[in-house]
Write a protein that binds this DNA or RNA. Structure first.
Length: 239
DNA sequence: CTGGGGACGGGGCCC
DNA sequence: CGGGCCCCGTCCCCA
């Protein structure tokens, strides 16, 4: 199962070992659509589009990247300046209430697999006009397809380690792993996190009630992933 | 095996 | 229409 919604399986089956990136430019192989330009010191200095792209895909991929320009001295402050974290309080002044695993956008699903299948499928009455050339996914709008193609082209490159990301905010989050910045603080303890999702998961450790219940045994878990792990570990259904 | 943290990804929504 | 962000989620690692 890939990271999300069964998409990345077509391109990567294993999480990269970042330590292997040191001193190498193997990162180029991450994307068949774009190439890093390696500077004289071995560092990545730019992203260039592979002009051998099929014309139709080249059309989609040729839009200007909104990511920080890698061609000049990279100003990290410009990366973080654009109201990135401060406004986050706007929608998360309170810890969010995660829905049970079988629910998503007001729909119910018997299992995460069914949920994923639904998300991959399209309504029978709608016929998406935009199809990704590198995977079976289809989209009903050009914008959605262009957003998806970014996950193939990975135009946002970390200036420190060269790792590439599909979106600027993913790169921002990654850069925090280098800087040690942890802008998301737990209101209940002293801990802080670089990633909001990790804060959300942490907040569940402060929750007395474990909301994810095993259907086959009386056990409950604070995180859906732990329930999945428990099920995969061999909790067989009740007779 | 379990619990928790770190890192990361995609779709959808909002502006 | 596009960028930014949130939500939800996975995977990995470690204690």
């Amino acid at each position: 199962m890939p990271r999300s919604f069964l998409v990345k399986k077509y391109f990567r089956s294993k999480k990269p070992n970042y330590s292997e990136l040191e001193g190498h430019s193997d990162l180029l192989e991450r994307s068949p659509l774009a190439e890093l330009q390696i500077g004289p010191n071995g560092g990545s200095v730019g992203l260039v589009w592979n002009l051998n792209l099929p014309p139709d895909l080249l059309f989609w991929a040729s839009s200007p990247s909104p990511c920080p320009s890698p061609t000049g001295p990279l100003d990290l402050s410009s990366i973080f300046s654009s109201s990135s974290e401060g406004e986050d309080e706007r929608r998360t002044s309170e810890p969010s209430r995660p829905e049970p695993a079988g629910h998503y956008r007001n729909r119910s699903y018997s299992a995460p697999t069914a949920l994923s299948l639904h998300q991959l499928s399209r309504p029978p009455t709608l016929k998406p006009a935009f199809r990704c050339k590198h995977c079976p996914k289809e989209y009903g709008s050009l914008g959605a397809l262009k957003m998806h193609i970014r996950s193939h082209t990975l135009p946002c490159v970390c200036p420190t380690c060269g790792k590439a990301f599909s979106r600027p905010w993913l790169l921002r989050g990654h850069i925090r792993t280098h800087t040690g910045e942890r802008p998301f603080s737990c209101p209940h303890c002293e801990r802080a996190f670089a990633d909001r999702s990790n804060l959300r998961a942490h907040l569940q450790t402060h929750t007395v009630v474990k909301r994810y219940h095993c259907a086959a045994c009386p056990r409950s878990f604070g995180r859906i992933s732990l329930l999945h792990k428990h099920s995969l570990a061999g909790c067989s259904p009740a007779p």
